[in-house]
């Protein structure tokens, strides 16, 4: 399980980030059916969530060995393979998280 979690860590962070952002903005818009411009707390939430998510997804990129410490049970070749899957997926997730975050920061919400 730990291995699966480490390899999929980037996409998992992406998923949580998407859920938080989309959920927050959709319900905020539903609650205040017509808000002019972007409410400040919402923008702050988006920015904060995106910053945290980016920080998290870069962990497997910055400290792959330490981050995936629990992979060591696998033989060498497997280890390298899984580590590189993990890093690539984290890398793609950085792009995806950044794209989603940017969209929310630029466009007025409702």
């Amino acid at each position: 399980m730990g291995i699966v979690f480490a390899v999929l860590f980037g996409p998992l962070v992406w998923a949580v980030h998407l859920m938080v952002l989309y959920g927050a903005h959709a319900s905020a818009c539903a609650a205040a059916a017509s808000v002019d411009g972007t409410p400040r707390p919402l923008i702050a939430l988006f920015a904060l969530a995106t910053a945290i998510a980016l920080l998290l997804v870069s962990l497997p990129l910055a400290l792959p060995k330490r981050f995936a410490g629990f992979l060591s049970r696998a033989p060498d070749e497997e280890n390298r393979f899984l580590l590189s899957l993990m890093r690539w997926l984290a890398g793609l997730s950085v792009v995806a998280v950044a794209a989603n975050g940017m969209a929310l920061l630029i466009v007025p919400p409702c």
Partner: peptide, 18 residues
């Protein structure tokens, strides 16, 4: 909401990468 449009439009283009 307009924001959903932007959000999912960006994501849809990004998925072409893989």
């Amino acid at each position: 909401p307009g924001l959903s449009l932007a959000f999912f439009s960006a994501a849809s283009m990004a998925v072409a990468v893989p």
